[in-house]
Nucleic acid binder design. Sequence first.
DNA 1: TTCGCTTGACGAAACGTTTAGCTAAACGTT
DNA 2: AACGTTTAGCTAAACGTTTCGTCAAGCGAA
Lengths: 334, 334
Amino acid sequence: MATMKDVARLAGVSIATVSSTLSGRNFVSPELKERVLAAIEELGYAPNAMASGLKRGTSSLIGLVVPDITNPFFTELVHHIQSRALENGFNVILGVSDNDAVREAELLRHMRTQQAAGSIVIPCGGEEDCRRLGQNGSGMPLVAADSAPLGMKLDTVVLDNRKAAGIATAHILSHGHERIAILVGPSHRFVSHERFLGFQAALEQRGVAFSESLAKRGNFQVDAAREAVLALLASRPRPTAIFVSNNLMMIGLLQAVAQAGLSVPKDISVVSIDDFPWATGVTPGLTTVRQPVKAIAISAFDCLAARIAGDEGEPRRIVLDPELVVRQSCAAPA
Amino acid sequence: MATMKDVARLAGVSIATVSSTLSGRNFVSPELKERVLAAIEELGYAPNAMASGLKRGTSSLIGLVVPDITNPFFTELVHHIQSRALENGFNVILGVSDNDAVREAELLRHMRTQQAAGSIVIPCGGEEDCRRLGQNGSGMPLVAADSAPLGMKLDTVVLDNRKAAGIATAHILSHGHERIAILVGPSHRFVSHERFLGFQAALEQRGVAFSESLAKRGNFQVDAAREAVLALLASRPRPTAIFVSNNLMMIGLLQAVAQAGLSVPKDISVVSIDDFPWATGVTPGLTTVRQPVKAIAISAFDCLAARIAGDEGEPRRIVLDPELVVRQSCAAPA
DNA sequence: TTCGCTTGACGAAACGTTTAGCTAAACGTT
DNA sequence: AACGTTTAGCTAAACGTTTCGTCAAGCGAA
């Protein structure tokens, strides 16, 4: 592999001149510049980011740690963060924590070892684990996105979860439903709690009673949601609508409804949080609350970039607004 | 950020001893080992992969370049490659080429600059672009997965695309269909071509005529597929079944069928290549040909790992078998 | 005691960059 | 002509590791 030394020798200049040519930090005469570029071309020289990073004490890598890349919401987030990073000259090291806080911490150590200039994490743990993230003494800037509780000593970028649940619930209520069930995520997660509160608040505002028996607390995954919905569908009186607080649980719901031989929205109305890329491919189209995924991604990256550039201000919290996407899965009760 | 020097000073040993303790390459007495570990703990020392990589002339990074991370098939591939890599002590730099061969090449240059020990690429281009990948003179080992044409001078890991199309088509034929349409991907892509050939061969074997008017050539994307299917559904005599040669086109198909007020499989049967994580969430369940995603991922990584370890053998081609997953989207014609 | 041998630990030289500091040539002033 | 000033380009010292060769101490054998 050719090095600067080789380029310098071939071009008949010093390595400092090669370096200056490449970085543009010092003036190099057009004549030498040309010779250097020709030598680079001829040797197929590519700079060595490790050497340069070592010397400069930083890298153009950022870490990105997500709980589960197959969840389309996270996939899209990764996608947007990656492309924003690329536009800004950064490469992304991807880590999948698999919803395991221990692995998450381990991956962040990896990022630090790789000298990542900073990292973005979508915390998978409960509030306790998140608090530990906040005490990241590593010196590597860290930004938490999506499921960051209040009070982390970090920049955080989150959805207004209460509002998201609120507009979903309000939409259901506006069709005249009164027995509305909810699928809640894992109780130790901040996101679940917020969405649950938003749901309750919306009911209360409309004067509709909340019944604990209609609240199913699961784990944000497909299977648990299916079982929960089967139980709901078997109960009497059956709820006429279900608010589903994330996308994976929506899949479980669809499975359960099909299995019970019922149909949406004739027998039961549903609205969920998290839009799907394929929400338009199913019949009926699913009414969902869309997160501003791209805006979350960009805000998170830009926060991180600011920290990398040396911003030392107080931790910021950016809260973004959801948007209701009305399709056909919510209708008036039978 | 603490360095080995700091650790050495605090432990009262040389940096060589610290290095030996960490790498285990030389024997260190238990006593010193303990002092070193204590110092590491106290200082919160983390090794600097750039320095070590620079010295050793290699890194524990691998590049992974995919055309489009939001396609669930690629998402899953990324997921499995990432976890296999992690198990083997590698971190993954993710690059999304966005189906652009220029960007793909650029990303591979990035990987090289970052001193990736090797890269896995899912080529997005046609045969011409792929051939260029084969002449990668960079010295960085490269493995192509999923859509690699024959004759690349690279290790390749691919699905048996002809067989995949064959078993899908045979399944359709076994229900008695005779007017079978096909949605083909972009014609310059090897994968499309192979799947098309598999389709034709299966028809021929059963003595069913192939009609060019029932072959719709698209771009593997949702929108084009929807339009193509709308045209097919409007044609008379209408085809009774459609073979869809990838997952995104399947979404387009579902949209078109809903838009035309028809239903699967009553009015039209469908079978597609690429299973979806949510294929079970739609009604009716989609009959698909599943790619052995995990096996592809593992093979690709293991090939790369062998090259990184110094394997200098001839380029290998690993061909893996598809599997038919029967659900409810294919029935007898009306 | 002396000699070689083993062994745990160390010193110092790389790895490929960046960059501070220097040199010498070229120029404009007086 | 002598002087300072500018400037293109160079030299060499880092950056934090790994690793080769060295060294001193401890040991058994002669």
